[in-house]
Computed example of a mutant assay.
Amino acid sequence: MKKIPLILFWAICGYCLLLEITLAHWQSYVDLISAFVVIGPALFSLLITKGNYVHRLSVACKIIWLSTGVSVMASFIEILNTAYRDIESFQMSLAVALLPVFYSLLLSLLVAPLLWRQVKG
């Protein structure tokens, strides 16, 4: 894959993401704890995994989704434990519980061209 299409891919993804975030309240997309739970284990897996960068990125993507699953399940358990409260707190808790999935999808989208590049050629 040439560098120009890769840069265009990332630019278009970034533009769409910024457009989506600016149309909504950008604060609803930011949760530093969820971001650390998703990104932290993946960064450490990059440090400890051996092999070329494609293998390390593919392992990091798998770790991202595993940590997302754990985070979402823990959030849903907490939501169900406090479901008797008012509907607004339930809705906000559900939105925060789904943020790790958003972060994982975003990271997977950004890393995918690097992984496809190696598979294709």
Rank of each mutant, 00 (worst) to 15 (best):
K2C: 04
K2M: 07
K2R: 09
K3S: 12
K3I: 15
I4K: 10
P5G: 05
P5T: 13
L6S: 09
L6E: 11
I7K: 03
I7N: 03
I7V: 15
F9I: 06
A11R: 04
A11H: 05
I12M: 04
I12E: 04
C13N: 13
G14Y: 11
Y15M: 07
C16H: 08
C16G: 10
L18F: 14
L18T: 12
L19H: 15
H25L: 04
H25T: 15
Q27M: 12
Y29E: 06
V30E: 05
V30K: 04
D31A: 07
L32S: 09
I33K: 13
I33V: 15
S34W: 04
F36K: 05
F36Y: 07
V37C: 12
I39Y: 03
I39T: 10
I39E: 01
P41K: 02
P41M: 05
A42N: 03
L43M: 11
L43W: 08
F44H: 06
F44I: 15
L46C: 05
L46W: 05
L46E: 11
L47F: 12
L47C: 08
I48P: 04
T49W: 08
T49D: 03
K50R: 14
G51M: 08
N52H: 08
N52W: 02
N52K: 11
Y53N: 14
V54I: 14
H55V: 09
R56I: 07
R56E: 05
R56K: 15
L57D: 01
S58H: 12
A60H: 02
A60P: 02
C61D: 07
C61H: 03
C61F: 05
K62F: 12
K62L: 13
W65P: 01
W65A: 00
L66Y: 11
S67M: 07
T68H: 03
T68Y: 01
T68L: 04
G69Q: 07
V70M: 08
M73Y: 13
A74T: 11
S75L: 06
F76S: 04
F76L: 14
E78C: 01
E78L: 07
I79Y: 08
I79V: 09
T82G: 05
A83K: 12
A83R: 10
Y84T: 14
Y84L: 07
Y84V: 12
Y84D: 10
R85I: 09
D86N: 15
D86S: 13
E88Q: 14
S89Q: 11
S89C: 03
F90R: 11
Q91I: 12
M92H: 12
M92T: 14
S93F: 02
L94Q: 09
L94M: 13
A95N: 13
A97D: 10
A97K: 07
A97M: 10
L99E: 01
V101Y: 08
F102Q: 06
L105K: 10
L106E: 00
L107N: 00
L107F: 01
S108T: 02
S108E: 00
S108N: 05
S108R: 00
L109E: 01
L109S: 09
L109Y: 01
L110M: 06
L110K: 00
L110D: 00
A112C: 08
A112L: 15
P113F: 02
P113A: 04
P113Q: 04
P113E: 07
R117T: 09
R117A: 13
R117D: 13
R117W: 08
Q118M: 03
Q118I: 09
V119E: 11
V119L: 11
K120L: 14
